Simulated scan of single mutants.
Amino acid sequence: MGPNGPIRRLDRFFQLLFSNIVVVALLLMVIVVLTLVIGRSAFGVAFFWGEELARYTMIFMAFIGGAVALRSDQHPRLTVFTSMLPTGVQVWLERFLAGCLAVTLAVLLWQGLDVALHDGRMKTPALRIPYFWIYLAVPLGAGAMLLMLLFKQFLPPAVSVDEQEDVKEVTE
């Protein structure tokens, strides 16, 4: 497996962990929204906590999903002009943009943690949980994206996302 075997295993672990978190969050969100729709239309019952839970689940899914998309190189981007550049310039530009992204994510991690720690004391209206847990999505997502950005610089992805097929695990 080579000298970076433990690093590869750690990278693979985090890719699968973040991917599974996104799947579970999406599944939970779908179940909650279906429960709300069926409850309202079939039984005339409105669950006061459902919309809030679906919203907060979507927030976590978006931030952790950003890490999954970053690692599998699935973030949308415009490549019309960069594809016309020479290969050396493209590589340099990609590294420069990765550095800019790392700085942005570090600031987001730091500021998100600050907001969660200092402004997260109030409780949500319906679920009555501290906003700290909701605000924590920002630093957790930024940290996950930073980690995936670091692994992306040195290793190929262990999980491949192909538009024509399902998500699949890459074998060596």
Rank of each mutant, 00 (worst) to 15 (best):
K123Q: 10
V89S: 07
Q111L: 07
P76Y: 04
V107S: 05
L136F: 09
A106K: 05
F60P: 08
D162Q: 14
P139S: 07
T124H: 03
G44S: 04
A102N: 13
T87I: 11
P130R: 03
L93M: 11
M58Y: 14
L10Q: 14
F14D: 00
R40T: 10
A126E: 00
H118L: 14
V22L: 00
T35Y: 11
P157A: 02
T79R: 06
V170Q: 14
K152V: 06
A144S: 03
A25T: 02
L27M: 15
G44Q: 06
G112P: 11
R40I: 07
I7A: 06
T87H: 12
A102F: 05
D114L: 04
L26A: 14
L147H: 03
R9P: 00
P86T: 03
E169P: 06
K152F: 07
G44W: 04
G88V: 13
A158C: 12
I31R: 08
V24W: 05
H75W: 01
M29Y: 11
L97Q: 06
Q111R: 08
T87Q: 12
D73H: 15
G66N: 03
T35Q: 11
H118M: 10
L101W: 09
V167I: 15
D166F: 12
A126K: 02
V161L: 12
A54R: 11
Q15E: 14
L147V: 06
G143W: 03
V45N: 09
A158V: 03
P125N: 05
E52F: 05
F18K: 11
Q153P: 01
P125F: 01
R40G: 03
L53M: 12
R55H: 13
L97A: 08
P139G: 12
L17M: 09
R128E: 13
D11T: 15
A106Q: 04
Q111I: 11
G141S: 09
D73F: 10
I64W: 01
M122Y: 03
P156S: 09
A54C: 10
P3L: 15
A46S: 10
A46Y: 02
A144F: 02
G39W: 08
L26W: 13
D11Q: 15
V23D: 08
M145E: 01
G120L: 10
I31M: 10
L27I: 15
L78M: 11
M148L: 04
F151T: 01
E94R: 13
D11H: 14
L17D: 00
A42C: 09
M1D: 12
P139T: 12
G120Q: 08
L147S: 01
L147F: 05
L16Y: 06
L127T: 04
Y135R: 07
G112W: 08
V107E: 05
P76G: 04
F48R: 14
A54N: 07
G44Y: 00
L150T: 00
Q90Y: 00
T104I: 11
R12T: 08
K152D: 10
D114K: 04
V107A: 09
F154L: 06
T124V: 07
A116Q: 07
V24S: 14
L101H: 07
L127P: 14
G99E: 06
F154A: 10
K168H: 14
T124W: 05
F14G: 02
R77N: 01
T79N: 13
G65C: 09
P130Q: 14
F132S: 03
L27A: 15
F96R: 02
F63A: 04
R121Y: 07
R128S: 05
Y135K: 05
P130F: 05
A67F: 00
P3G: 15
S83G: 11
F151K: 00
